[in-house]
Every structure is written in C-alpha cells, then in structure tokens.
C-alpha cells in the first residue's frame, strides 16, 4: 500500500486575522514497506502533515492518494483509511480511558465492527507485539501501569486495528534511555514481523540514523529534502541552520574530514564510526 501526497497545502483558520499557513506544497511518496523518518523543528508542520495521512485534517489544497484513490473522494470511506493508516500520537498514553487494558485495546477493533472473537484475538496479538504479557495485564486498569507500559498499551490500541501503515509521532518522548531503546527496538521488530510501512517522527537524530531507511526534512512548512539519510546528514551546516542537528558521530567524522583527515563521512552509528576509525588507523599502521 502506498501513499502519495500531492501539492498538499494546509492553512489554519483561513480568511481570518489568525490565518496561518501550516504546510505548503508538499510532495511525498511513501512506498510499500519503506521505513521513513520525518524530522523538523517544532512548528515546522510535521504534525499537520501526518494528520493528513489518515484524513484527520482536510487539505486546503492538494490531495492525499492512497492505493490510487484520493482519500477525500466520495468512493473512499475515511473510516477504512484510518484503519489502514494507524496514527500513534505523541504521549499516546493520554488517550487511554477504559477500565481494563483489554477493553482499551479493543476500542479500535470494536469501532471497526468486528465480531467479538476476532476482537479478542487481535487484542491478544497486539499486546504481545508490544511485549506485554496478555494474561497478566489484560484485566488491570491502564492507569495503574508504569509510564512505559501505558505507552505500549496505547500503541497496541492502534496495532489492534491491523494497519498497513504505522505513523508514530515521537514515540519515545519523555522516556528514559532504556525505555527509549526498548520502544525503538520494538518498532523495528514490528515492522519486520508485520511487514509494515512505518513513518517515525523524531527529534533524535541518533535514533533516526540508527533505524530508518529514508528521511524527510520539514522546515517552516515546507519539505526541504527527502531521500537517503546518509546523503541528508552530509549537509551538517544546512541542518543546523534549520534548528536540527546530525548524529554526534557523523558530526565527528565531518569535522575530522574538515581538518584534512582521510576518513569517510558516510557514518551514522557509533559502530560504523568505530570501524572507520580503526580502518584508518590500521592503514597508517598505528593500531
């Protein structure tokens, strides 16, 4: 399943003194099975953009095409679109409301009108996908869980709808390093196991560099670049000017190269940096 965003513009409160252009003329194609990172400063329009992908916001102009059809045309039901494109908001634990974990995760599938049997099957699967023990947790109140567990329950609530595309808005915000690494790993596993298309919004360049295949950069409402993260992170100055950064190790290699050292700057992770520096040292016979 693919999403094509075509000339998308969104203006908040048009024709009032409060009118503001949130995103401008966005063109973006997300193909089946891709793992995208979406970065941009606060207020760059990332949230506005992703809320168009499942029809929560309606474009002021332009269109969103999913599987060849404009999602706002009459023949397409937005309910189906929202099932196909699962959207996990920032701090998703704030949307929990049911008395038990099981009921909360079942909210989505129930809204889809699925039979009870199918619902319980999906709830169980979804909870296991996010690494929560179904039997132990299903009857607990979501509000007595730890922060990290609550977030997992909320993500399971979206997964239970069996989306083909999963959009996550800063899924690690507010978590400590261990919690962050666990959630990121789960997202990577999920993508593999469920063969999902994933779009990950994040402020952490280190996290993004570690896991995504493709990267899109937003700046002041426009999509200023998209493509391979290795290519995009080469533009260190440009990204810093846009209020963004690059992974520390990439910065390190670029700065070493700037000092005339013969190293590759095509480095995204600590492991890659380690290998590259060792290789360079060996070439010089130093290690």
């Amino acid at each position: 399943m693919s999403i094509v965003v075509k000339n998308l513009t969104h203006i908040y409160m048009p024709n009032t003194p409060f009118e503001s252009v949130a995103i401008k003329d966005i063109n973006w194609t997300i193909n089946d099975g891709e793992f995208w990172g979406l970065i941009g400063h606060t207020g760059s329009g990332k949230s506005t953009l992703i809320q168009h992908l499942n029809g929560l916001l309606k474009p002021t102009s332009g269109e969103i095409i999913i599987d060849g059809k404009n999602i706002h045309s009459k023949e397409v039901s937005l309910k189906t679109i929202r099932q196909k494109v699962g959207l996990v908001f920032q701090y998703p634990e704030h949307q929990l409301f049911e008395e038990t974990v099981e009921q909360d995760v079942a909210f989505g599938p129930r809204n889809m009108g699925l039979p009870d049997e199918e619902i319980s099957k999906r709830v169980k699967e979804a909870l296991e996908l996010v690494g929560l023990p179904y039997e132990q947790i299903k009857d607990k109140s979501p509000f007595e869980l730890s922060g990290g567990q609550m977030r997992r329950v909320a993500i399971a609530g979206v997964l239970a709808m069996k989306p083909q595309i999963l959009v996550l808005d800063e899924p690690t915000a507010g978590l400590d390093p261990r919690g962050r690494d666990e959630i990121l790993q789960e997202i990577v596993d999920l993508k593999e196991k469920q063969n999902l298309t994933v779009i990950l919004v994040s402020h952490s360049m280190e996290d993004i560099a570690k896991i995504v295949d493709k990267l899109a950069v937003m700046y002041k409402g426009e999509m200023v670049s998209q493509g391979n993260p290795r290519e995009i992170f080469k533009d260190y100055q440009g990204l810093v000017e846009k209020g963004l950064g690059i992974p520390q190790v990439t910065e390190l290699m670029i700065k070493l190269k700037g000092k005339g050292k013969n190293v590759s700057t095509d480095i995204l992770t600590v492991e890659e940096a380690r290998a590259e520096i060792l290789k360079t040292l060996r070439r010089k016979g130093l290690a």
Binding site: D176, Q248, V249, V270, R274, I277
Partner: peptide, 14 residues
C-alpha cells in the same frame, strides 16, 4: 539503564 554521549561511547570502544 543510562546512556552516554555517542563520542564518549566511541572513545570507550576505541
């Protein structure tokens, strides 16, 4: 369960 800056980790590994 904590983390260090990437360069600190790199220096450690090297």
């Amino acid at each position: 369960g904590l983390d260090v800056p990437q360069v600190t980790e790199l220096a450690y590994l090297l």
